[in-house]
Design a protein around this nucleic acid. Structure first.
Lengths: 247, 247
DNA sequence: ATCTACATACTTGTATGGCAGTGCGCAAGT
DNA sequence: ACTTGCGCACTGCCATACAAGTATGTAGAT
């Protein structure tokens, strides 16, 4: 049976919105459910390989099965849920190959982004980035979810600076996979290391060194590979396709 | 009012499947509708900014509103459709910024892919690529849709060779945007130029030159930028966000 | 002539019922 | 003890009905 306990903040992109886990009766149900269920899956409140039936979820939120179903279908497209017809609906395990390939995509794209930005760094951008670094350093070690939000904002800023406002949307499905991993480590993330890498990246941008900025960004985005084996060993049941770890 | 005329082949990924525009009563309706409607939008059988009501589509295919609705929701997530509650459902215009940003993403990713492949080219891969080039050269000038299929297969092969089987899935939404543009030009695509670029890429891979392969791939994927202005001038009503053409 | 109010014909959103496929347990036969 | 067959509870899929918001055209009042 599904359990339901309230956590105020979850995920990076949706941190700023309040009432993450409650339905606002004034708004349409289906999009709200999509966000709620996505958040619950990412933070493993809904366990990988767990079964979630349309009926149960409908009862839980006091809505009919239809909006639940529509929400689940979108989650299928995002690779978070698997619907086996006439059999059941299940939370997908974290597909390791998707995580690795998604990371590859993100590295390629963000490397090009930071290179483009470093070609002609603007003064206002540099001021913004420096301020963000300051805020990241001030972020307390315990509040990992707050840091995730700042990190997300940092990378998003770079994409915007490159004039690629829509790129972040394209990368959303890849980030989802990585976020599921990131949420396991969560509190013990090497915050200091990541901030230092951010600083290196900003330095490279400021000195207008596209090539160096690119390598710095690539190194930064490979950091998740370091924690992966440990996470995988600790939560083997959460993962799928583990044999694809040769890359 | 919506019109419905049968075209056997549309889109690149789905070319091999027969009966693209007919419903198979044995399979589930909703996924079939998703593919059909997506194909009809990409090839502009359903015109940009045109209205498509759930009821009409349901009558057209002799199914109820529900599966139609589910298909449309997935198309919303793919950026092909816009649902305005209580107002109507419309085919989205081709968002120029999404096209450009999607192309940027694809260039970044495929550049890294081809570089990785060129580091250690295998003999069997080279044989495969050479055979594909041969098939491309044999492709008649008229059958542009067949060439699109071959082109798609070519790029997919490289991704697989890099061990990135899931990357293509991540790129699907970006490709959708580009395909809508590509389908306008369609018959007059510079097939010979593209094949020559493919040959250059394969040569670079064979000589194990990652850097040169990367630049060749980048040049290849910038080809669409050349035709964009003309297409845009000829079908201005199909496009949106045209002022973003400074990039 | 102009503006307002309302009836009406749309649209999408949600709820509900029936259908068909699936898996599991239990019971009967081997 | 093992296998086989049936029944039942469960699932998601689809059709239908109802609800609620929106645009539009028209009749009436000003």
């Amino acid at each position: 049976m599904l359990r339901f306990y309230v956590i105020k903040q979850v995920g990076a992109r949706t941190l700023t919105q309040a009432n993450q886990w409650q339905l606002d009766p004034l708004l349409a149900v289906s999009p709200q459910l999509r966000r709620i269920l996505r958040a619950r899956i990412i933070c493993h409140d809904l366990k990988p390989a767990g079964s979630i039936s349309e009926t149960d979820l409908g009862k839980m939120y006091n809505v009919s099965r239809q909006p639940v179903r529509e929400a689940l279908i979108t989650l299928v497209n995002e690779g978070l849920v698997e619907i086996r017809p006439q059999r059941g609906t299940f939370v997908k395990r974290i597909d390791l190959e998707s995580v690795l390939n998604g990371r590859f995509v993100r590295e390629a794209v963000e490397a090009d982004i930071v290179a483009k930005v470093a070609k002609r760094p603007s003064a206002t951008l540099m001021a913004d980035l420096r301020a963000q670094l300051k805020a990241q350093r001030l972020c307390k070690k315990g509040s990992a979810n707050h840091f995730i939000e700042l990190d997300e904002h940092f990378h998003h800023t770079l994409a915007d600076a490159a004039g690629m406002h829509k790129v972040w949307d394209f990368l959303e499905s890849t980030k989802l996979q990585m976020d599921r991993v990131r949420f396991i480590t969560f509190e013990e993330f090497p915050t200091q290391t990541l901030i230092q890498q951010h600083e290196v990246i900003v330095d490279c941008i400021e000195s207008a060194s596209p090539a160096r900025a690119q390598t710095a960004m690539r190194k930064h985005l490979r950091e998740i590979l370091a924690v992966l084996p440990e996470v995988l060993a600790r939560y083997p049941d959460y993962f799928d396709n583990v044999e694809a770890m040769q890359s």
